[in-house]
Amino acid sequence: MAKQKVLPTGVERFFSDKDLIVSKTDLKGRITYTNRIFRDIAGYSGADLDGAPHSLIRHPDMPRCVFKLLWDTIEAGGEVFAYVKNMCANGDHYWVLAHVTPSYDAAGRMVGYHSNRRVPNPTLIRDTITPLYERLLEAERQAPDRKIGMQAGHALLTGLLQDKGTSYDEFIHTL
């Protein structure tokens, strides 16, 4: 029996500002570790998550171009901070400020990625991030296909940052 597609419910979940959501993945983005807080808020068991693609919790309101920027940065060995709207197993959602970094073995080879997520400022999400992501999504959805859409969203984001005279990292850190 095929697994039924989960649809967004519009219900937001929250976690404590004292909590830290943690996950680790391999180089392909398959989950190798999640902490209890991750599992509790996302509504998945460890068995459901182990080996699953991290995109399992991707909310359809998230612009693909934000993930492109994230992946481009960490695959190049950099770290990135990003505001992310994640989807729970039942379709509810939760917002995080994610800090994603590469993980290395003792020989210095990149072996995966580590992400720590904290509670974001709700006013910032409402007033800045949500309107920005809606603009990026609109650019992505107007394109004839997903790849061109991601490129259009990325171009819009890059242009907005250039207009502000700032980098993505500077933009995120000044919010």
Rank of each mutant, 00 (worst) to 15 (best):
R135C: 03
I129D: 10
L132I: 11
R117N: 03
S103L: 14
L132A: 08
E140W: 07
G108Y: 14
T123M: 03
H99P: 00
R117T: 09
A139Q: 01
Y113S: 08
V100M: 06
H99V: 06
E138Y: 07
P120Y: 03
L136N: 04
I125D: 02
I125S: 08
R117P: 03
L137I: 00
L137P: 02
I129V: 15
P102W: 10
P120E: 07
R109Y: 11
G108T: 02
L124C: 13
R135V: 00
A107Q: 11
D105E: 08
L137A: 04
P122T: 10
V111K: 15
D127C: 12
H99K: 09
E138C: 12
A98V: 04
T101I: 07
L97V: 14
E138P: 00
T101F: 05
H114W: 08
A107R: 14
L136Y: 03
R117C: 03
P131W: 09
P102I: 05
A139R: 01
P122Q: 14
S103W: 01
S103Y: 06
I129M: 09
E134F: 01
A107M: 07
R109M: 05
L136A: 04
E140G: 09
N121R: 12
N116Q: 12
A107K: 12
D127M: 11
H99F: 10
N116E: 05
L97H: 07
G108F: 09
P131R: 09
A98P: 07
T123S: 13
A98I: 00
G112Q: 09
Y104W: 07
